[in-house]
Each structure stands twice: as C-alpha cells, then as structure tokens.
C-alpha cells in the first residue's frame, strides 16, 4: 500500500472529510498521475463545481478519451465512460442525444481532443451540441512519454522533436470561438477558484461550452526542458498570467513560457442542435412531429 493511500485513508477516517471525496470512486485511489501534475488539481476544481452547481449528480455523465487526462472519467463517481482515443466528443454526442436529460461533460487532454480528435471538436462546436468540454492542456503527450502535441509551443524539446519543436501550435480558445462555442474560457491550475467558478458557470449553461485548463506535466514537459517541477510551473502561471475577460480569442495564443491570457472570452446564446431540430421539425411537420426530449420511450 502506498504512502499516499495510507494518508488518504487516514484523512477519510477523520471527521473533517475532504469535501471532494464523495465525488471520487475512492476504491480506485491511488490514481496514476505523477507528483506535480495538474490534472488532479483540475479534478478537485471540477468536484467543487459539481457541489456548487446544484445539479443532480445521477444525471451528470463524464466522458473521456485516452491519455493521462483521459483517466479522469474513471476516478469520478458519476456515470463515466472511458472511450477510444480522440472520440470522447462523438460518444458524448450520442449519449446526450440518446438521453437529453443528461448533463454530459467531456474531460480529456489536448492531444486527444485536438490532434486525433480535432475534427470532432470542430463539428460538435459547429452544431452547438449541448456538452461541456474541459481540455487539460499540458502541451505534451504524457501517457506515451512526452511526444510533440498540437499545442506544444515552438521551442521546447519533445521525444519526437528532439531538437526542439518547430511546428506552430493551436490557439484552443480561438478554435472554439471560431467554431461557434457558446462559452469559452481559459484558466491555469494556479487559478483554482476562478477555474471552479468557470466550471460551475459552464455546467449550468447550454450549448457547446469549452474550458482550457493549463496544467504542468513535470515528468515529460517541464523537467525535460529544464523548467523545474510542478511547483515551478505553477509559479510561472502565477507570475505570467493576465486576466483579460472578453479578450479577442485571436490574440491569446500561447508562446513558449510567455504571457498567459486567462479569463472568460466568450459567453453567448445560440440554439443547441436539439433545440434547432425540434424547432425546425415542429415548423415543417406541425402536429405530425412530437418534439424529442426525454429518454427513450418504453424504457
């Protein structure tokens, strides 16, 4: 039994129980994440957001792809789906349309959502599929050992860019904005209060919602590039972040160890895919159409 598990169990026995514990599958702890990794911090924020959201947790489902962040679904005590690499969004699309009563959250990494899964992100945002997508961006492929990602800034070394990355990275909020997301924000794992608040706000909003969470990968990104450990990265986030709510998303791309613009950039109303479908068919078909909204009939 690991030390962290002992500590965890000891904490669980005290009366001052960690408020996020009920949200975790405690029989799955310890988790796989490295010391200094920010994914756990983001999950902590998400649990707090769930508490504050007032949602019926039996109706919240979480869907992940593959990768370090992709393991999130398995640790949360919700209906949880660990799907295939890059395909969390289309699975979530099926889940949401299959039962529109569900509040469906996709929780995955930058490689999963924007490299192999990029196409699905664009189309789900274009359709305004009613899901919340949380992307933990650690600028690298952690699970496979630190390969270049579509978010890796120009400069740092990765195992498949051994002489330093020369490819331009994506600006994730700009993509989400351009594709039609109703809510777009970016925070780092230093900004725990703001991040939890943003998650709560996004959980209670309709449409395709996107939150980028900057997170250290000390094992395969920071240390390899002599940027220190997790704490050093969080210090960098603290010292270099600028809150610019409403900033134009085209101006907030991330450079290598440069300024980080955080905040809420987009918050708008747009009919969701299902609202559009119901509205359109009601107009065209009149009484022949019964708006679709509940769970499958007869079940």
């Amino acid at each position: 039994m690991s030390e962290s598990l002992d500590l965890h169990l000891a904490l669980a026995e005290t009366e001052l129980e960690n408020p996020v514990l009920p949200y975790l599958r405690q029989d799955r702890i310890p988790h796989i994440w490295c010391p200094g990794c920010g994914i756990g911090t983001s999950v902590n924020c998400f649990c707090r957001a769930l508490t504050d959201s007032g949602l019926d947790l039996d109706k919240v489902a979480i869907v992940s792809g593959i990768g370090c962040t992709g393991r999130t679904a398995g640790y949360l005590n919700l209906d949880s789906f660990h799907t295939t690499h890059g395909r969390a969004i289309p699975f979530a699309t099926g889940l949401k349309l299959g039962n529109p009563d569900l509040n469906v959250v996709v929780y995955s990494g930058d490689g999963d959502l924007f490299a192999i899964g990029g196409n699905h992100f664009f189309h789900a945002a274009r359709r305004n599929m009613d899901i919340l997508v949380i992307c933990v961006n650690n600028f690298t492929y952690g699970m496979t050992g630190g390969q270049v990602a579509p978010t890796t800034p120009v400069g740092p070394t990765q195992t498949t860019m051994p002489l330093g990355n020369f490819e331009s990275p994506f600006n994730l909020p700009f993509i989400a904005d351009a594709c039609g997301a109703t809510y777009v924000s970016r925070w780092t794992v230093y900004h725990v209060r703001q991040l939890a608040k943003a998650m709560k706000e996004a959980l209670n909003k309709k449409g395709f919602r996107f939150i980028e969470v900057m997170s250290p990968c000390p094992t395969l990104y920071s240390r390899r590039n002599r940027l220190g450990d997790g704490v050093d990265q969080v210090k960098y986030y603290k010292e270099n972040s600028v809150i610019k709510n409403g900033a134009d998303t085209k101006d907030i791309g991330l450079g290598y160890q440069g300024e980080i613009v955080v905040g809420k950039f987009v918050d708008r109303e747009r009919a969701t895919w299902l609202e559009s479908m119901n509205d359109h068919f009601s107009k065209v078909l009149g009484d022949q159409f019964k708006p679709y909204g509940g769970k499958p009939e007869g079940v």
């Binding site: 395909r87 289309p90 099926g94 569900l102």
Partner: peptide, 9 residues
Amino acid sequence: IAIQGGVWA
C-alpha cells in the same frame, strides 16, 4: 462511437 453513446443512454 456516437451510436454507442446512444446505447448507454
């Protein structure tokens, strides 16, 4: 994979 989401719904 979307159809499989539909199944689990």
